[in-house]
Design a protein around this nucleic acid. Structure first.
Lengths: 159, 159
DNA sequence: CTTTTTGCAAATGATTTGCATTAAC
DNA sequence: GTTAATGCAAATCATTTGCAAAAAG
């Protein structure tokens, strides 16, 4: 894991910030694989390795990682999701099960950034969220009249 | 105001729902002009005309209007913003002052919807949020080292 | 009159804050 | 040794829920 650790360590030292085990573990929990996780989910993962870690620390660290440009926030309406994929990209969000998935449409966000810049805006990120029914829930919905068994965010990723 | 009222009235009657003054006023507060407002801001406006209106009613009604397709939710991380412009479109959000502004980039969301559909997703809305500094705050930032006097959402609109 | 909608109070969920203790440097 | 980071408890903010009273059809 030293590979991704080093990036964080360098950025922390650059700014005179301290390298702590919480910061390393929280960063690892996200950097491991592309995913969309809530602060609560990050806490669960980190606690395996470092019991006693607290939610305020997770929030503070995610905020720090965001400032360092190592994670992005994805606002979908409920809890904020944190994404280790930092290049501007898009997501789908299912109204039924809540699942958030990556969607590749790079030129899309690229155009939006250009348009914003033309309007005098100084953009640093662009997030496109497409709302609707994911393939699974769209299939279920055929004929059935079930009540929306709304699930919390989860985290799947597909390019 | 009968013009926009009628649209709501028809939709309510179609579904056997009741036409109440709260529903009319909340709808008017949004339909008047394109804007991005929080539930709290809607309440403030509605209370001028109908004191005693409550926040739970505002939330319930905004949810209803969203289901009727008369408003859209815009998730920017903090309080959800409600937008009477229902055609898929984009927004800029300022990291400094929090201001949310319309941004026209129709082909952008159109492409995203197509891409999502191709992936088996059944989309009903697409929201693109471009984050960064608005023209005003970008100008202020030149040289000055002020603390981010973070303001709550506001509501400006520019095509 | 019947049923939906409202308002109120209280609950919930996400995130932040204050402060004493602990760990980096 | 200093100072920044952490953990805990409590506060805050946005939103939802339960239930009795008011209003629409």
């Amino acid at each position: 894991m030293a590979a991704t650790d080093q990036i964080l360590i360098d950025k922390l030292r650059e700014r005179g910030l301290r390298v702590t085990s919480q910061r390393l573990l929280i960063h690892r929990a996200l950097a491991a694989k592309p995913q969309h996780v809530t602060a609560e989910q990050v806490l669960t993962r980190v606690r395996d390795a470092l019991p006693g870690t607290s939610l305020p620390t997770v929030y503070a660290t995610l905020e720090l990682l965001a400032q360092l440009g190592l994670v992005h926030r994805v606002a979908t309406g409920g809890a904020v999701l944190f994404d280790s994929r930092v290049a501007p990209h898009s997501h789908t969000a299912c109204r039924h099960c809540g699942r958030v998935t990556d969607l590749d449409s790079r030129p899309v966000t690229r155009d939006a950034l250009r348009t914003a810049r033309a309007a005098g805006f100084r953009p640093d990120d662009a997030q496109l969220v497409v709302w609707g029914l994911c393939p699974d829930c769209a299939a279920d919905q055929t004929g059935t009249t079930e009540s929306p068994s709304r699930t919390r965010p989860g985290s799947t990723t597909s390019p």
